[in-house]
Simulated scan of single mutants.
Amino acid sequence: MTDNTTRVALVTGGSGGIGRAVVERLARDGFAVGVHYAGNKARADETVAAVTAAGGRAVAVAGDVADEHAMTDAFDAVEREFGGLDVVVNTAGIMLLSPIATLDLADLDRMHRTNIRGTFVVSQQAARRIRSGGAIINFSTSVTRLRFPAYGAYVASKAAVEGMTLILARELRGRDITVNAVAPGPTATPLFLDGKDQTTIDDLAATAPLERLGTPQDIAETVAFLAGPARWINGQTLYANGGLA
């Protein structure tokens, strides 16, 4: 167990994509990191091993983000291992695309359970536990501005994330805890690339002034900024999208 001077982070969805990049970036900044996963223990263990091999400290914790009992256990495990909690980054989310007129409402419910209820449950635990000087960082999407067709239900869930994030920042007045959301643009992760043909991917990459897709590492840098030096940024949504919106 580390002492209480060590900065400690918990990253939900931390076993792959943006989440893994965030874990590795925070570990390089000296954080001890809880790597949360929902179903893929092997991938979470690989992430922990990568952090450990680089000289960092990490532990894998499991649970459905929308299950308050499972997340209570996950938060407890991180606190037991590292002695406290300073930063919570909630990257866990799902994206199911369809025009609103033809969306299967079961998909709507799945997204809302993970993206809205899951963010709420994680934020609730974070608000109860994070030490003074800490940060809560949730995830939205730049599509709230870009308004791509077929993203209606996903955007609805992420607009809810933005709303609860900005209110929580105000509810934590006096505790020296920042609460912000990161809204990535098109980023080269399996979540984004799945189901898209190469022409669509190339067109999206060319749209941003920087003429490329974002990388998980690009987004992780934004998170590291909010988790560390950005103490005067609070109650905001930061759009990390290369100038796309």
Results as ranks from 00 to 15, higher is better:
A135C: 09
R145Q: 15
Q124I: 01
R147H: 14
G84P: 01
T91V: 13
T91C: 03
P149N: 02
S123D: 13
R147L: 13
T119S: 11
S123H: 14
L103Q: 14
L105Y: 13
R128M: 11
D86S: 10
G84K: 03
P149M: 03
L105M: 11
A135Q: 02
S140E: 02
I137P: 00
V87C: 06
R128L: 14
N90M: 09
V143E: 09
L108P: 03
S123P: 13
L105S: 10
N138D: 11
Q125Y: 02
L146P: 03
H112S: 13
M95I: 09
F139L: 10
I100V: 14
Y151M: 08
Q125C: 03
G84D: 04
T141Q: 06
R117N: 06
I100S: 06
G134E: 00
F120M: 15
R131H: 09
V89Q: 07
D86R: 04
L103T: 15
H112K: 09
V143R: 00
G118R: 01
L96G: 08
R113F: 04
L108D: 04
A101Y: 06
D86L: 12
R113I: 14
S142H: 06
R110P: 04
R128A: 15
N138C: 12
M111N: 06
A127Y: 11
L97R: 06
F139Q: 07
G118I: 01
L105H: 14
R131L: 07
I130H: 00
A127H: 07
R117D: 13
L96V: 07
T114M: 05
G84C: 03
R128N: 10
A126I: 00
R147S: 10
S132T: 11
A135K: 05
R147D: 09
R110F: 05
I100A: 12
M95W: 13
T141C: 05
L85G: 00
D104T: 12
A126Q: 09
S140Y: 07
N90G: 08
Y151Q: 03
D86M: 04
I136M: 04
G118T: 05
M95L: 15
R110V: 06
V122I: 14
N138F: 09
A135G: 12
L108W: 10
V89I: 14
T114H: 10
V88H: 04
I94G: 08
A135Y: 05
V88N: 04
R110K: 15
A92R: 07
G134M: 02
P149W: 08
I94W: 09
D107Q: 15
R128C: 10
V143G: 01
F139Y: 12
I116F: 08
R117C: 09
F148H: 12
I137T: 02
N115S: 14
